[in-house]
Nucleic acid binder design. Structure first.
Lengths: 177, 177
DNA sequence: TTTTGCATGTAAAGGGTTACATGATTAC
DNA sequence: GTAATCATGTAACCCTTTACATGCAAAA
C-alpha cells in the first residue's frame, strides 16, 4: 500500500488538489508510480479521515473550485516512519512476457507487430525522460544537489527504458530468424 | 487480468496441479509473473467453472492426493484469442523509488542500507537467471530454437536485472557524495 | 523434534480498474 | 460545434494480499 505514501510524499513538497496530483503522477512520476483519478480522490478522502492531511476549498476565477490538501504533522510522522522502514522488492507481472512465452500460439507477424507497438511506447517514454533530464542538467550545481534524489529516480527510468529497448531489439531479430 | 492467461499458457504445455503451477511461478516465471498459492487455487476453481480447464484427481503413494488440471478446447480458444490481441504496456508502481524520491526525510545511512538490501536481492535473482541461461545455451540447436520464446523472456529478466544493478551502483555513489 | 516439502483450501480486507456521472470554460 | 482542459466524485467489479486452517511424510 504505497499510493498513500506516494501522495504524502507529493503533499510534503507542496499542498495540492487531487487534480494536481493526477497531473503529477502522469507527468513527473509516471515512470515509477501510476494511479487513476478515481483512486487518487478516494485515497485523499481516506487520508483526510485519518487526519494525515487537511482540506481547504479554494475558489477560482472562471474555473471550478479546488480542494487543496496539505499534509498534517501526523501525516509527516507517518511518512517519515514509512520512509525509514524496509520496502519489499517490486512484484513484476508482465503480460507481454506471458504472451511471448506462449507465443507459439500466435503468428510471427502478430508477435512482431505487438513488439513494435511496445517499442513505440517505450521510445516515447524514454524521450520524455531525456527531456526532463536535460532540464535538470541545466540547473546550477546547488539546485542540482537539492533535487539529486528525484533525479536518481529519473535515472532509473532512463536506464530501465534503455534496457527495455535493447532487449526488444534483440528479441525482434531473434524472432525474425 | 492475466493470471488467468499465465495459468492457461502453463497448462497448454502440460497438465499440472495448483502446487505444480505455484512452483513454476516461483522458479521459472518469477521474473515476469508472480502469484501466491491462494490466488492460484482460486483462479483454477474459476477457470474450471468456466469450462476452460478440467480437473482430474490423482492418488499418490505416501503423498497427498493431487488435482491435476488440463486445458480444454475452449481454454485453448480463449488463450489463442488472448495471445493474438493487444496487451497494454506494463504499469509500474515502484515503492523503492517513492522512498528515494522523498529520501530527504530519511538518513543517508538508512537509504544506503535499503539500497544494499535491494542490491542483494537483485544480484541473487540475476545469478539464478544466468544459471538457467547456461542450461539453455547447452541445449542442442534444435532444442534451442524450440524454446526460443521462453528464452527471450529470460533474456528480458537478465537485461532488466543488469540494468537495475548498474542504476543502483550509480545511485549509491551519487548519494555517498 | 523441528523444519521442510507436499498438497489444498476459505474469509476478510485492501488495492486497482471500468463504467457511470456532472458541468463550466477555453481553444480550434 | 467539437474537443480539450479543469475539477470532482460514486458504484460495481475484479485482482491481490494477509490471516487462518489442516495434515501427512521425510529429512535434519
Amino acid at each position: 500500500m504505497s499510493l498513500k505514501h506516494a501522495i504524502l510524499v507529493l503533499l510534503e513538497t507542496e499542498p495540492s488538489s487531487g487534480y494536481d496530483l493526477m497531473r503529477h503522477f502522469k507527468q513527473n512520476l509516471g515512470y515509477f508510480w501510476n494511479a487513476k483519478h478515481q483512486q487518487i480522490y478516494q485515497q485523499l478522502k481516506t487520508l483526510n479521515e485519518e487526519g494525515l492531511i487537511t482540506c481547504t476549498i479554494e475558489s477560482q476565477v472562471s474555473k471550478p473550485d479546488k480542494k487543496v490538501y496539505a499534509i498534517t504533522p501526523n501525516g509527516e510522522a507517518e511518512l517519515t516512519s514509512w520512509i525509514s522502514s524496509e520496502v519489499k522488492p517490486n512484484k513484476i507481472n508482465d503480460a507481454l512476457l506471458v504472451k511471448l512465452y506462449g507465443g507459439h500460439l500466435a503468428s510471427k507477424p502478430n508477435l512482431l507487430e505487438e513488439l513494435d507497438r511496445h517499442i513505440t511506447f517505450h521510445t516515447t517514454t524514454l524521450e520524455k525522460l531525456i527531456q526532463i533530464e536535460k532540464t535538470y542538467l541545466n540547473f546550477p550545481p546547488i539546485k542540482q544537489s537539492k533535487y539529486l534524489l528525484p533525479y536518481l529516480t529519473l535515472r532509473r527510468g532512463i536506464i530501465g527504458e534503455n534496457a527495455w529497448l535493447s532487449w526488444a531489439k534483440e528479441a525482434k531479430s531473434a524472432i525474425k530468424k
